[in-house]
Amino acid sequence: MTVIALASAKSCGVTTSALAMTLSSTRPSLLAECDPAGGTIRAGLFQAQITAGTGLYHLAVAERAGEDALAQAFAHHLVGLDASGHRQVLPGLTDPAQAPALVRSWPALAQVMRVLSDEGGYDVIVDAGRLALESGRLHSTLTPAPLLHGADLVLLVVRATDQSLALARHMSEPLRNELTEHGTGADALGVLLIEDGHRRAHEVSEALRLPVMASLPWEPDTAAYLAGTSRAPRGLKKSPLLSSARTAVSYLQAAAARRALHQQYPPTPSAPSPPWGPAIQPAPGPAVLPAPAAPQIAGVLQRLGQGRVDPRG
């Protein structure tokens, strides 16, 4: 299916947006909270019902024991977001000091997410948090760069304000270069616009030289619930935020499918530009295709189907 990574130049609602998209997907979905600065879902939406014994950090420990241990740990550390079990979350770090332990684990985790998408039929939403640069490149410790490299789409979450645009403008070019050199191409990069501010989509696209691939309305009540600071509002299932997130996910799935088709069958030089956004052109060179999954990694799919103990008891 689709791997979508969300990130921002500064806190712009990445986790709330990722939760809304995961909860709204019409297909099995997984949210991986991979912000090296620490996760907020555990203390927020789950109201501290999940202990530090569950979550991302333990996958770094398991990865050192081998791929099979990583696959077992990945399935064990997922927590259900709904009663059906079709929507799940991998809670993030409890302490930013744990981030260095994940540097060598990100590539293996990226492969697991690729397997879940391509072979398991999951939509995988990666919360990459706030991006950090080092000498003009993504910081190796403070950013989960391999997860961005392997994603079908990478969305820079931006609010429709001048302040948010100013911060994102400094991040868009390094991120575009990173995906050109190490990812699936610069055309994987776009904007998820949070409609909190006076800037229109075309203004955001022109300012950042990136296509606005999706947008979400500013709805404080539902956002507060997803952040864990308020009770669920009445009519949550009909929330404009969740409804728009459902539409956004469907559009992004289609955009990712078009990208994959374009990479597999690139147009001739005289062919028109692809339809997913005029702001950037596909990067030259061969498509970056996922490597076949090792049997141990592919085994995570079977373990996911066998059920897990809810860490909340």
Score class of each variant (00 low, 15 high):
L175A: 05
P292M: 08
L102F: 07
V126G: 06
T54V: 13
K237G: 10
S25L: 07
G53N: 14
R27S: 10
S230Y: 04
S24K: 06
L56D: 02
A108T: 12
H202Y: 11
Q296T: 13
R87L: 09
D127C: 03
A283M: 10
A254N: 13
Q264N: 08
P174A: 02
D152V: 00
G150P: 00
V288C: 09
R64N: 10
L226S: 08
A291N: 05
G92E: 10
H139C: 03
C34P: 07
R303H: 11
L81Q: 02
R209G: 11
L23W: 05
L93H: 09
A201E: 14
V3R: 13
G55S: 05
L56T: 08
G80I: 03
L30W: 01
L175K: 07
Q72A: 15
P100G: 05
Q98E: 12
A291E: 13
T141G: 05
L56V: 12
A201N: 07
G66I: 10
R234M: 13
V14C: 09
I194G: 08
H76T: 15
S105T: 15
D152R: 09
G13E: 03
I280R: 15
T94Q: 09
S273A: 15
S29A: 15
R159C: 08
T22L: 01
A283T: 15
R159K: 08
L102V: 09
V112S: 05
L59G: 01
T161Y: 05
Q111I: 00
V126L: 11
V103K: 07
L165M: 13
T26E: 14
R308A: 13
V212T: 08
T40Q: 06
Y225T: 00
I125F: 14
G85V: 06
Q72G: 08
H170D: 14
L138C: 02
L147R: 03
G313V: 09
A32D: 06
D82N: 14
S230P: 02
V124Y: 00
T184E: 04
H182P: 02
P267T: 05
R130F: 01
G190W: 10
V126C: 02
L189W: 07
T143E: 07
A255D: 12
V212I: 06
A271I: 11
G66C: 05
A75E: 01
E33M: 06
H139M: 01
